[in-house]
């Protein structure tokens, strides 16, 4: 699609969508939202980019190899954090007993490992959305 209005609006609006997605991911433990919602918003921003600029341009921005590496590393990050809970506290994903920094409830840096887990889930969901869409619309 070669439309200057759609391209200009996309170029203006994609950074705001991505900032909102990162905000939802990073505030997952103190406000509504979390890894899944924020990752879906981040993935939708790249889907909008692909729809207006075409698949070759989007593949140059974020290649298929990069999205598959991000997808795998997101779930590996989750498992490594969980195993750190086993090593320090005795159970999978244990938080307070393992001695992680809890902080003051309601602040951004608090709640131990939950922001790190939410970050991993967000990266995983966003790259899964992008991979699904690129796989569906690519030409054989």
């Amino acid at each position: 699609m070669d439309d200057i209005i759609v391209k200009t609006i996309t170029r203006l609006i994609v950074p705001f969508i991505q900032v909102y997605g990162i905000f939802v991911i990073l505030h997952g433990h103190i406000s509504p939202g979390g890894g899944f919602s924020g990752g879906a918003v981040l993935g939708s921003s790249m889907i909008l980019f692909t729809l207006s600029f075409g698949l070759p341009m989007a593949s140059r921005k974020i290649p298929h190899k990069v999205t598959s590496i991000l997808e795998t590393s997101g779930i590996l990050w989750y498992i490594i954090i969980g195993l750190a809970g086993i090593y320090l506290g005795g159970k999978f994903l244990v938080n307070k007993e393992a001695g992680f920094f809890m902080g003051q409830a309601g602040e951004l840096i608090s709640a131990g490992i939950i922001p790190l887990l939410t970050l991993g889930i967000g990266i995983k969901v966003a790259s899964t959305m992008i991979t699904l869409f690129h796989t569906i619309i690519e030409e054989d």
């Binding site: 509504p32 919602s37 879906a40 918003v41 939708s44 889907i47 869409f133």
Partner: peptide, 11 residues
């Protein structure tokens, strides 16, 4: 609601 608006109506 946030998830439904992003997943259901968008993706």
């Amino acid at each position: 609601a946030l998830t439904e608006a992003a997943i259901g109506a968008g993706v």
